[in-house]
């Protein structure tokens, strides 16, 4: 009796391992291995064409002390946080509208929202150049209206342009999680709160916002984490004032031929983002209970 039981448990375990092995190897090769290599690289030194593999913290010291890196880190965080804030703030009303006012056409509206995102991210970012540029759509329009006499230049090639482009580019990634969390709110709770005397505004702040918080927090993380390291958007619309840390990492890896420093900058960026994300999640822990 015991023998058969042991045997069946054993086969179950083997089955489990077999099922997990492929994704496990996949993630080992594609995630763990490159990260480990990057981690090791950050403690080495580039000596023209060869790598000096003696352990050193110099790269990290340079990343922490050089004003240019500090400026880029701060700017990246500021741009990303601002973009995250605006994306979530603009996505919430859209998700709210679809969830509460679209009745049976929800699927259609969600579909319509994703249509602009069938185009490549690169092209969409490039289009902001066309819209905001010196001879761009916006300037031509303002000239035509005779609101300006010559094209304005403050639209493109600065941090604001990056925030604007990021806010547009990441919108669906905020709308979807917020929509899902709004969908999950039991509608009878809304009637109950109304029955107990809540005005629509009370209801929003006492029921809808706290219950959709998991979606909002999720959306904020989904946008904040990748946008800190965004490379193509600042490159296209950021000019020199809008350059971010990823652009510096790219320069260090290629033109400056200093892969260890680039690795140290990457690891620092990773740690800063992880730290902020963890603090953010802990700060909002009470809203993340599962209901």
């Amino acid at each position: 009796m015991g023998g058969t039981l042991n045997f069946s448990i054993k086969t179950e375990t083997i089955k489990g391992w077999r099922l997990l092995s492929v994704p496990f190897i996949f993630s080992l090769l594609l995630l763990a291995a490159p990260l480990t290599m990057m981690f090791l690289l950050s403690f080495w030194t580039q000596d023209y064409l060869t790598l000096d593999k003696t352990f050193t913290l110099n790269n990290y010291i340079e990343a922490a002390t050089q004003p240019v890196y500090r400026l880029l880190f701060t700017r990246s965080l500021l741009i990303s946080l601002t973009a995250t804030f605006f994306t979530v703030a603009l996505a919430f009303p859209m998700a709210y509208f679809i969830s509460f006012h679209c009745g049976e056409r929800k699927a259609l509206w969600l579909f319509l929202i994703t249509i602009p995102f069938w185009t490549s991210y690169l092209i969409r970012m490039f289009l902001w150049k066309v819209i905001l540029g010196y001879n761009g759509v916006l300037n031509s329009f303002l000239l035509w209206l005779e609101m300006i006499t010559e094209p304005v230049t403050f639209l493109l090639y600065n941090a604001n342009a990056v925030v604007l482009a990021l806010t547009h580019g990441w919108a669906p990634f905020a709308i979807l999680p917020i929509f899902v969390s709004l969908e999950k709110i039991d509608r009878s709770l809304l009637e109950a709160s109304k029955d107990l005397g809540d005005s629509p505004i009370d209801q929003f702040f006492r029921i809808i916002l706290p219950l959709s918080a998991p979606g909002v927090i999720g959306a904020a993380l989904i946008i904040f984490i990748p946008t800190v390291g965004d490379y193509i958007t600042p490159k296209l619309v950021g000019g020199t004032d809008g350059l971010m840390i990823a652009n510096m990492i790219q320069v260090q890896f290629s033109k400056a031929n200093n892969a260890p420093l680039a690795a140290a900058l990457s690891m620092s960026s990773l740690m800063i983002v992880s730290f902020i994300s963890i603090v953010f999640v802990l700060f909002n822990k009470k809203y993340l209970r599962r209901y």
Partner: peptide, 14 residues
């Protein structure tokens, strides 16, 4: 001046 007890109670989960 009415209050309701809902079928599924509608207790606020948070």
């Amino acid at each position: 001046p009415t209050n309701m007890v809902f079928q599924n109670y509608a207790i606020f989960p948070h």
